[in-house]
């Protein structure tokens, strides 16, 4: 694995993210409201919640792709006012340019301006990391959905962002690749400690990756007294890499699943 060379490269510093009283409405429809979230530099935060609750919307706000109807977002102490070079986003869809090869798609993620040898090496390295070296010359239509998602991840990593925003990055991967990619992400994070915000539907993935899991919830309109989009925040104990089968996490797992409205039939350990 080429993580030794990654270690040599000068990683951008991880940046803190601070969200204060964020709200977003689309017309009459209130999607986010009263979001307060402090993310320390280098932390991995997982956003989880039912479909349509606003996870992608929150992520897009952090990346400066959407502007809030209320509240503020700071990255590294400076406000986000628009598209932001401090963060990089991997969208929920791979969004690859169909006329470019895989390599040239990853190059899109490099910082703009003159490209040098290091940049080219970086792309080769990233393709190796996401196990796509053999497919580097192919066009997007020639690769599978899971491969496309890995290209999108590599592209987001290319610019060494201070904040990495991943919207269901492993959603289209098969179970095995998914586990491998989770480990890869943690490995990368250990080498280049960016702040990472990940959206996922997978509770196990959340608990395996996160320092903190944020449970977002759909707002119930009649419950107007409490318009909070963050339903609960769970701090995951222990240090990574975590034991995937750990019994400690079973409680949290049940708690999150209950929060998502899934009956778990879990018997508390006492």
């Amino acid at each position: 694995m080429s993580s030794s060379s990654l270690r040599r490269s000068t990683a951008a510093d991880a940046l803190s993210v601070s969200i204060r009283d964020l709200s977003r409405s689309f017309g009459e429809r209130r999607v986010l409201s009263g979001i307060d979230l402090e993310i320390t530099a280098g932390e991995i935060v997982v956003l989880i919640g039912p479909s349509g609750c606003g996870k992608s919307t929150l992520l897009r706000h952090i990346g400066g792709l959407d502007s809030p109807t209320g509240g503020t977002i700071d990255i590294g102490g400076a406000p986000v006012t628009g598209l932001d070079a401090r963060s990089a986003i991997a969208f929920q869809e791979p969004r690859l340019l169909p006329w470019r090869s895989i390599t040239r798609n990853v190059e899109v993620g490099l910082p703009r301006g003159k490209r040098n040898r290091d940049d080219r090496d970086r792309v080769i390295e990233l393709l190796d990391l996401v196990k796509l070296s053999a497919s580097a010359h192919l066009r997007p239509r020639e690769i599978s959905g899971g491969m496309a998602q890995r290209v999108s991840l590599a592209r987001a990593l290319a610019r060494r962002p201070g904040v990495l925003l991943l919207d269901e990055p492993f959603g289209a991967l098969d179970a095995l690749t998914r586990l491998a990619m989770q480990d890869l992400l943690l490995e990368l994070h250990a080498v280049e400690p960016a702040t990472i915000v990940i959206v996922t539907h997978d509770v196990d993935e959340a608990l395996y990756l996160a320092d903190r899991v944020i449970l977002l919830g759909a707002i119930v309109p009649e419950d107007s007294s409490e318009l909070l989009s963050i339903r609960s925040t769970v701090t995951v104990p222990g240090v990574r890499p975590r034991d995937r089968g750990s019994g400690d996490l079973a409680e949290l797992r049940a708690e999150l699943l209950e929060g998502l409205g899934v009956p778990t039939h879990h018997l508390s350990s006492q």
Partner: peptide, 27 residues
């Protein structure tokens, strides 16, 4: 529009965005 947004989110705008996304797309 997704591809255009992708280009913008990676710092492309104006003529650079045009040659990254729109022009190739309409070839």
């Amino acid at each position: 529009a997704h591809l255009v947004e992708l280009g913008r989110s990676y710092g492309y705008s104006g003529p650079a965005l045009l040659s990254l996304v729109q022009l190739p797309a309409v070839v």
